[in-house]
Write a protein that binds this DNA or RNA. Structure first.
Lengths: 318, 318
DNA sequence: CCCCCTCCCGTTACCGCTAACATAGCGATT
DNA sequence: AATCGCTATGTTAGCGGTAACGGGAGGGGG
């Protein structure tokens, strides 16, 4: 018992015994068994984080925000990846909840019915992240992808472009991409414009796909004067293709992507984009999980962040 | 007890009771407590994975190999990130071991003394990945970064380049980058050549840094005819800078990076690089962890993979 | 001198599950 | 009918810690 007190820095132990315990622990190479500890104390210092993918670039950034915020709280993130599959999400969530984490951070608002039920009954703070367009189970931190798309449409129209094409992922399960798409079309519709053409892809290297799709769509509809890409990587691919083919950007054709991927800083021409506040989303979500027990919040906060439009060099000004 | 048997598919239970149990579990929203289960059975279906960073692009790929291989084994990866800090690594490892995972996959061969001791005494299979240049604790899966650097040097010299510069990260703790650097200089030395200049960076967007550094080094040493970058992202930045500035690649100057990052497929000019077998490393490591209990291997395997040189378009041929 | 309080350390009873063993039920075998 | 063998289910005792409480030693106040 005294050993337990020393190793957890809890309760009074004399300096003398404390040192003896620590020394003994070190010389034995003793590593306490958190499984037993967690079972006895009903406390687990883990936070489940469930995201669709790690190769998307966006999610590692969110994760980094989460880690940073959790750093000094004694909490530790545990990551699960769903590959955009709702069934996998359900399975991963089940697995995580069976470890009784102190909280769950999960991407998106769309879950299977069973997953939603588990979240509701988990009895710990839940934060759904990335997206605020919909109804959350508990707390929500994100941006409105619908409005992001809408604002981009407005900016494009304000810049004088009229023949607009959309390039994106096939998005059966990427709800956020779909919401941007919907918002974008809505924004165009407000100005009485409809999408002149669109092109979707699946899998493969995004940069290369961006090139291919750009070539395809411009061959099919040569009079397009703007291309809106559903993410920065395919946008960058398109931009490179335009530059290689001597197309005047943003004069002859304008381009924009989405996400504000730092990785692309360093292209000769900066792609117009919209920052999705990824690190910030991670931070806020972690803050909610970490703060809940102390502040005794009842939950259900909804934090909507504002994505910032960065015009870059691929939308003409004035 | 019967419930336990049903939920684990273990032992004989009649079909009738099995169904009753499952139905009851579902209607109660029962999620078994793995903490208690693990404590009682002394078995934990988690594999600790400790890597330096998630933003490096390389590690998510390794992870994806691990996840894929673990998919049907009932084992689940739990990721810890060290930010290239040995102290953080030690802390993360301690935290992980306190959950008594079924195995640990950890990047690199260099650890603090305490970390090494923990690995040795963990009593579960340990796989050190990425690097085989050194002495491992248990199993090792990776490539020889020293030889990767060396081979690149040979290829560059064979192509006729002589005034060679190196651009890389400041690498107090990136041992693999250092080993490539050492191997590279060794390769040059064999041909009686020494590095004509070098430049190091830290932090920031790699693409942008690649541009900056390339400009800096070429301004300082204008007669360089080859630049070897310690990773593909800064290499790509350098490549873009050269293209923007109308420098003839690979005629006037040759370029090469390291890693074979898929992300960059789609640049107009393919950067010479060396594939580091990242997914494969992940797969093999996971295979060792997953296979150990069944096959009763004693451990200590060393699997060295061969990185493949891809000449791309930035080293002149013949 | 007694009482009470504080500081330290020990005792006891779980936490929720599973390994191992015990037992009940029932048909087949001798 | 007694025994055996098998399947299906129940019982018991932990797993390695922690919460909650107990209690001895020492000190200060009345």
């Amino acid at each position: 018992m005294t050993v337990s007190r020393v190793l957890r820095n809890r309760g009074d132990v004399s300096e003398a015994t404390r040192e003896k315990v620590l020394e003994a622990a070190k010389s034995l190479g003793y590593v306490p068994n958190k499984i037993a500890g967690a079972l006895a104390s009903q406390r687990v210092n883990l936070v489940g984080v469930i995201i669709p993918s790690l190769s998307n670039l966006v999610f590692p950034e969110v994760l980094s925000g989460i880690s940073a915020e959790l750093e000094d709280t004694g909490l530790q993130p545990v990551v699960g990846v769903t590959n955009y599959s709702p069934e996998k999400e359900e399975a991963v969530l089940y697995e995580m909840l069976s470890w009784r984490p102190s909280g769950v951070i999960i991407a998106g608002l769309e879950h299977t019915e069973a997953a939603r039920a588990m979240l509701e009954n988990a009895g710990v703070p839940i934060v759904e992240i990335m997206d605020v367009d919909g109804q959350g189970v508990d707390s929500v931190v994100g941006i409105s992808h619908r409005r992001a798309g809408l604002h981009m449409a407005e900016a494009i129209i304000a810049a004088g472009y009229r023949r607009i094409g959309f390039l994106g992922t096939k998005m059966p399960e990427d709800h956020r991409a779909r919401k941007r798409y919907d918002g974008f079309k809505e924004g165009l519709a407000e100005a009485g414009i409809t999408l002149a053409d669109e092109e979707f892809y699946q899998g493969g290297s995004a940069l290369a796909k961006g090139r291919e799709m750009t070539e395809t769509i411009l061959r099919r509809t040569p009079d397009l004067d703007f291309l809106y890409y559903s993410n920065d990587m395919i946008g960058a691919g398109g931009l490179l293709w335009c530059l290689d083919n001597g197309i005047d950007v943003p004069g002859r054709i304008g381009l924009a992507g989405f996400n504000g991927v730092d990785l692309l800083e360093g292209l000769s021409v900066r792609l117009a984009t919209m920052d999705a506040c990824r690190r910030e989303i991670g931070r806020k979500a972690a803050e909610i999980i970490a703060g809940r027990p102390h502040q005794g919040l009842i939950g259900g906060e909804v934090i909507e962040l504002e994505p910032v439009l960065e015009l870059g060099d691929t939308i003409r000004k004035g």
